[in-house]
Design a protein around this nucleic acid. Structure first.
Lengths: 219, 219
DNA sequence: CGCGATTTTGACGGCACTCAAGCGCCGTGG
DNA sequence: CCACGGCGCTTGAGTGCCGTCAAAATCGCG
């Protein structure tokens, strides 16, 4: 009895093309930047991080991904993956053969729309990250991050106020452009202001309004 | 006698669909975020900036665009533009009716590839920006910016070492996640280290190696 | 239970921001 | 043509946020 809730409804169309399941152990890569696009993936269970590296070894986490989301879509244009995708915990995905998708896309026009939308969503998410990285202070970044997670958990039918982080402070820091000590300090600040309760990876949002206000007022 | 050099060769295919030219005056918008996608645009002359705004009025410039580049591609998925596009100087573009493109895309499979690639390029550029915003210090950001501009001018057949900036210090700052005073100071630093010559918007790169080294070594 | 990894917390320093003043370039109008 | 005004740019002084370095606590896992 599975009722996957997709990031976007039209992804249900892709689900019908899912050929097989694949399980990924924690810290394993689903694909790497530069490798050819063979499959698109729908997350059935678990979570992932995507990251890009530059020529000097710097790493930037570009996103965290959970249930119902499509992975690999930004490779559609070039046929090569643009980022590394690593499981944050033991996870499970549907494999969707891209060759199959390319074949079917000529017969089913709505399938193309579906792919295009997936890529646009990726661009839109990236724009939001750029805004965050370019113009927010540490407190605002972390508040934005928590509110985003909260919404996504809620959309999956989980609690919007109590959830467990799947990533380390360092990974949060990489995503938000902060050092892990700063992330930790901000969590402590939030606790002291009674906005959240933190116990390691366990988060309870106690004052949603306050978090939203933090994102709102800027200098 | 026009020989447009495109950002990517396959854009030449889109050029054949160009129906009319349009001129845009400085500081005019080509389109705005949220407006429906009616045309894609190929830049014939001039330059543009794209920016996103958040609900609190913060602005982030997501890119600068010049000759031969395609504008509006990230709206392909949703049918609505995701960013504002403003001319930095009096400019000229080809209009390409998106309705026409959508009609032709079923007959010409390579046209779809062309659009997909355009979107992938956008994602790739954004990843680079996120890396820059998330993990570089001011000096590295500005050096990266200058090297990127240099390459793009060179690709258009212009000098890689002497060019005029089309944007203000404040716009550079918005793009790089810095305040304009910091941008100005960094330019002065670069001049003092004889890496570049700056006179207002006029840039001369005098020591390309040094700029590249700046990007290289991190902490 | 014990070890390594993760997280917290403290002290300190530096890079970038803020605020402010002055300069220079350019377009406009007298 | 020149004077004026506004905007963009530069530069300085001071501050503060976040990074760095370090140590201790806690967690998770074998």
């Amino acid at each position: 009895m599975e009722t996957t809730i997709f990031e976007s409804e039209e992804l249900r169309q892709l689900e019908t093309l899912a050929q097989q399941r694949r399980t990924i152990k924690r810290y394993q890569h689903l694909f790497r930047a530069g490798s050819p696009l063979q499959y698109l993936y729908l997350i059935r269970a678990g979570s992932f991080k995507s990251c890009v590296l530059d020529s000097n070894g710097r790493e930037q986490i570009t996103g965290f991904h959970m249930n119902g989301e499509l992975l690999g879509s930004c490779a559609i244009g070039t046929g090569k993956h643009l980022c590394d995708m690593m499981a944050l915990e033991d996870s499970s995905v549907y494999e969707i053969s891209f060759a199959e998708v390319e074949r079917l896309v000529r017969e089913i026009p709505t399938l193309q729309r579906c792919l295009n939308r997936a890529m646009s969503r990726e661009v839109e998410r990236n724009y939001k990250s750029m805004l965050l990285l370019g113009s927010m202070r540490a407190e605002e970044r972390l508040a934005t991050f928590l509110l985003d997670l909260s919404q996504r958990f809620a959309k999956q039918g989980y609690s919007a106020t109590e959830f467990n982080l799947r990533m380390t402070r360092e990974e949060i820091g990489s995503y938000l452009g902060l050092k892990f000590e700063t992330v930790s300090r901000m969590f402590s600040n939030f606790r002291e202001s009674h906005s959240i309760e933190v116990k390691n990876r366990a988060i309870e949002i106690k004052d949603l309004n306050r978090l939203q206000q933090m994102v709102g007022h800027y200098a």
